[in-house]
């Protein structure tokens, strides 16, 4: 098997800091985030035909992460994210959206880990992959929790856009093609309100 080349990045969010990142990636990356006490990290990351490994270490008490990851795949793609709740009162909300455009593989491996020593944590993940054709997609939504005082939710959906949604759009005069564009854009923008994200994303969507 070919070894996947990845660039390495280490990012530390210092005590009491809040950071929002908007990333557009076209090359494979390993990113490790380390969050100190009372810090907050918000990320909107958009990947195009890449493989990513993300590790988020919630090392300080009351640290918090909100991670929005969207991936467009025209070839085989792999995305791994590991969230480590290493301190009390830490919180993670992870939203992973993948669009498998052709008949390839798209694999998501999503892990939230709360060890026994970390109390009162919130560990949530929401995962979706839309197959536009007959791609072979998998999601592994793993919650490894060794502590009772935790709030944790996970969801995983693999499939196509629902026919009833398309019917509703078309019943208002929107063509099938435009309806798909609207659904793809909304799905991949993944709750970002930044105009620049939308413009960059629209450029990529127009290539589908």
């Amino acid at each position: 098997m070919n070894k996947i080349e990845r660039k390495e990045k280490f990012i530390t969010i210092s005590k009491n800091q809040e950071i929002e990142l908007h990333l557009f990636d076209k090359e494979n990356k390993n990113i490790i985030y380390s969050l100190e006490k009372n810090s907050k990290l918000i990320v909107y990351q958009y990947g195009f035909d890449i493989n990513n490994n993300i590790e988020i270490q919630l090392n300080g008490e009351n640290s918090e992460v909100e991670y929005h990851y969207s991936l467009i795949g025209h070839q085989n793609t792999q995305y791994n994210i590991l969230v480590l709740h290493n301190a009390n009162n830490t919180k993670s909300n992870i939203y992973n959206h993948g669009l498998n455009v052709l008949n390839n593989k798209m694999d998501f491996n999503i892990v939230g880990k709360v060890p026994k020593k970390s109390k009162n944590c919130i560990c949530n993940q929401e995962n979706q992959i839309i197959n536009l054709k007959n791609g072979n997609s998998t999601i592994l939504p793993n919650l490894l929790i060794d502590q009772y005082e935790v709030v944790s939710n996970h969801s995983a959906y693999i499939g196509k856009f629902k026919d009833d949604i398309l019917f509703y759009l078309m019943s208002r005069g929107i063509s099938k093609k435009r309806g798909y564009e609207l659904l793809i854009k909304s799905f991949l923008i993944n709750n970002s309100n930044k105009q620049e994200d939308l413009i960059n994303l629209e450029k990529e969507i127009s290539k589908i």
């Binding site: 019917f167 759009l169 659904l183 909304s186």
Partner: peptide, 11 residues
């Protein structure tokens, strides 16, 4: 129908 992600305005 609910259309998650699409705002009323955009729609």
């Amino acid at each position: 129908t609910v259309i998650n992600g699409v705002t009323n305005s955009e729609f």
